[in-house]
Amino acid sequence: MTWTKSLVAAALLLAALVLQTSVLTAFAWDGVVVNLVLLAVVALALTQSPQFAVVAGFAGGVLLDLAPPADHVAGRWTLALLLVAYVAARVRPDGRPSAAAVVGTVAACSFIGSSVFALTGALLGDLAADTGQVLEVIGIGLVLDVLLTPIVLPPLLALLARFRPDTRPLGRLGGGLRPAER
């Protein structure tokens, strides 16, 4: 089961990457494309264990960093998506997330992901854009990601909900105390 789940997650991330670089670029808005890999990581974080989510976030980031035509310093998307997975797993509500919760998570994660990527670039001297361009790209990216959420996330969440046996025991094992009772 874990093997299947990992394979599905890997295939999902790869498919997201290829669609993002080769198909959706034709529909780019000012060069900005929907960050499908980020959406996939958020979907994984919303359905799987936090442990699985951060590893998936890491893997998705490595793909974005190393697959052509990437040319930035590798590791920047890795750290950004790692944080995205952590945050998404952290804010995830118990049980099935509501539509508003999903959209809110995507919006926050899109902002965090793009910002962290830009910030690490600025720190490493790898960022050639000025602040105005950065903010514009982050803004447009956020809007695109949120716009695509109603189309992309529901089928993804439905697919991934089949692979969730480890989330329930984890929740129960969390000490018998549910967060609300603490």
Partner: peptide, 26 residues
């Protein structure tokens, strides 16, 4: 009790370090 919503700290640290190593290497 461990918060069920956070990953194990060791994993997180390992992944962050791996990412930072990639940054340095590349």
């Amino acid at each position: 009790p461990r918060d069920p919503r956070t990953p194990r700290r060791s994993t997180l640290v390992a992944l962050v370090l791996a990412g930072a190593t990639m940054l340095t290497l590349d």
